[in-house]
């Protein structure tokens, strides 16, 4: 079989003949197909789980959110290099999934629905960030990396430098996993105020550390 001119240098450089190269391509394609099949088998049945979740099945909802969390995390890891930001977006997106679960139409592709929420929240995050960066031009300092047993003590000593309200706010948002909105409701603050205050506290803590 004749191969195009473009393949010739590759074949020469690897010192393989045309037949073995074609075999290699065929094997490679089979491997890719096998990987895709394996992945499909590992994937949960999103649509069924979501329908059960809509009916109030907690086990199905837990499985769905766990699998979706991992999937979203992989998606965001390729796009956001800041771990805290990625976690924040992930949390907001999962909240969005939870709040809008009634908008999923049974029988429709679940992932298209879920990813459109993730992308909306991602875009919303960048829009908000762009607005805030016009107000706050403080450069974000690099937080030191703690290791092993010292982490708890280091965090506690940092939190002790804050007043009560700020300590509660940081604990709720950064340690206990509450969303900005929920933390705001508990501390009687608006969501945007919580975002701004947390941003300021993090900058202050970075300066202390």
């Amino acid at each position: 079989m004749e191969l195009g001119i473009g393949w010739s240098p590759l074949i020469r450089s690897q010192e393989i003949n045309t037949t073995s190269f074609l075999d290699y391509l065929v094997n490679y394609r089979q491997e890719i197909q096998q990987m895709a099949t394996d992945r499909t088998h590992q994937e949960p049945n999103w649509e069924d789980l979501m329908e059960l979740a809509q009916a109030g099945n907690q086990k199905a909802y837990h499985d769905l959110l766990s699998a979706l969390y991992d999937r979203f995390q992989t998606y965001l890891e390729y796009r956001i290099n800041d771990f805290d930001t990625m976690e924040d977006i992930l949390m907001v997106a999962m909240e969005g999934i939870h709040q809008s679960r009634h908008t999923y139409k049974p029988g429709k592709p679940f992932l298209a629905w879920a990813y459109s929420i993730l992308k909306y929240k991602l875009a919303d995050h960048y829009r908000t960030q762009a607005r805030q960066s016009e107000i706050f031009t403080i450069a974000k300092a690099d937080l030191p990396v703690y290791d092993g047993k010292d982490v708890q003590l280091q965090i506690e000593s940092l939190l002790n430098t804050l007043d009560d309200r700020d300590r509660q706010l940081i604990s709720k948002v950064k340690l206990e996993g509450y969303s900005y909105r929920e933390a705001g409701e508990q501390l009687d603050m608006s969501e945007s105020n919580v975002k701004v205050t947390v941003h300021r506290i993090m900058n202050r803590l970075a300066g202390i550390a």
């Binding site: 979740a53 809509q54 009916a55 109030g56 907690q58 909802y61 837990h62 959110l65 999962m94 909240e95 939870h98 679960r101 009634h102 908008t103 999923y104 139409k105 049974p106």
Partner: peptide, 11 residues
């Protein structure tokens, strides 16, 4: 989120 789950009707 799971503890906050309640049955919903699709819109």
């Amino acid at each position: 989120l799971v503890s906050d789950l309640s049955p919903v009707k699709p819109i």
